[in-house]
Design a binder for these strands. Sequence first.
DNA 1: ACTCACAAACTGACTAAATCACTTAGCCAC
DNA 2: GTGGCTAAGTGATTTAGTCAGTTTGTGAGT
Lengths: 222, 222
Amino acid sequence: MPPSLSDRLTESILGIIRDGGLRPGDAIPSARELAKRFAITTPTVREALRKLEATGAVEFRHGSGTYVGPTINNVVLANPHRPPITKDSVLQLISARLVIEPAVAAQSALARRAENLERLEAAVTNALVPPGGPAFALNFHVELAAASGNPLLQEVLASLLKVRVREQQQIRALYDNRGRDHKEHQAIVEAVRAQDAVQAERLTREHLDNIRRAVESSPELS
Amino acid sequence: MPPSLSDRLTESILGIIRDGGLRPGDAIPSARELAKRFAITTPTVREALRKLEATGAVEFRHGSGTYVGPTINNVVLANPHRPPITKDSVLQLISARLVIEPAVAAQSALARRAENLERLEAAVTNALVPPGGPAFALNFHVELAAASGNPLLQEVLASLLKVRVREQQQIRALYDNRGRDHKEHQAIVEAVRAQDAVQAERLTREHLDNIRRAVESSPELS
DNA sequence: ACTCACAAACTGACTAAATCACTTAGCCAC
DNA sequence: GTGGCTAAGTGATTTAGTCAGTTTGTGAGT
């Protein structure tokens, strides 16, 4: 079965973006322009663009244009259509993080670099900012992975931790303990700064274990 | 900015699928039927379906219908539009796997269960089947993650290891060492069967280190 | 009774030509 | 300058239809 016109179109549009050296935030040709260039109609172009939109490769801005999206170069993605969370799915997520994150923390301690440490410390302090503050608050656990120097690890953690804004509030209301989290985050950062991989790994495991306990003993999700 | 009609539509279609208890492979209403039900036109419905197609939530079969896709319940996804691989990106991937997989192997050794072991052993033997054989060959490293009992870890590994078929051949031609891989895989399986987490972790790390060395000393990608 | 060819009937794929809604940039008056 | 208006460009959606595959049932022939 030959790939559909829509499939070939998405590849062509990606080609335009990559061959043109366009980066996230740059504008791409309008849908009408693309339709003319490929000698097809606009609904077909829009179908291809919607596919790219679903993976964050492009973004629509009504009245303005279509732009390269933030995750166009990602290898893994958070599923934008993921099923709604349940208590079980949250526990499953924490179990997976208990496997992955301690090893990531150890790696970050070994690879720690100046600019990563700065962002990591910013994430620790930002965590105390009440909700409704800055739109794109740094997530401590994502920044901890970023400090490893491997963008793929950052992608994995960001994808695992990305939940809908609505649900994030729900989770925080039930499980969050800002004070304790902040202290534990600080301890992890200190271990990373000291390049103490063993300690970073241990503290991260304990931190996630505490979170798991909080979730286990919490009431059901609505 | 209110969510677009297309966005609301994808949510509604997902609602139809989930509320109807539909599972991967089941047929969903036709585009014309959905258009009638929501009192909109077919191009708009198609845009919404294309978004769902991009994340594997639905699949089109020309002339037959639209069906629930295999990854509708995933939390993380392999980016279907990921950039083409380079030698550097392959090394980056192996570095990330060196952080994650040893910990996963240890977890799988602790949690090993009968049915998982069976699939794991099948993956080891399947690895010797020459290409062109079964369409969906089990991937040893994905099955190793599956043996942990946590579907999220399996998703992460599957997403990291999913590369285009074309590129897979390219990689194999350059780096693969079937005989050595098979031996090392067998050793890992034995450690898992013996529930020896420390050994499983060590063997997995060494295995990936060997792969990394093979890649580092290989010629550039075309 | 069985089988095979064939013809609806249904499905997705795509076209064509508009109209509406929103954003941006330029211009002009104040 | 600064505010507001306007015009051009853009995405959003509609309407109506054609083309191309797949499935299924029917009926003729065996």
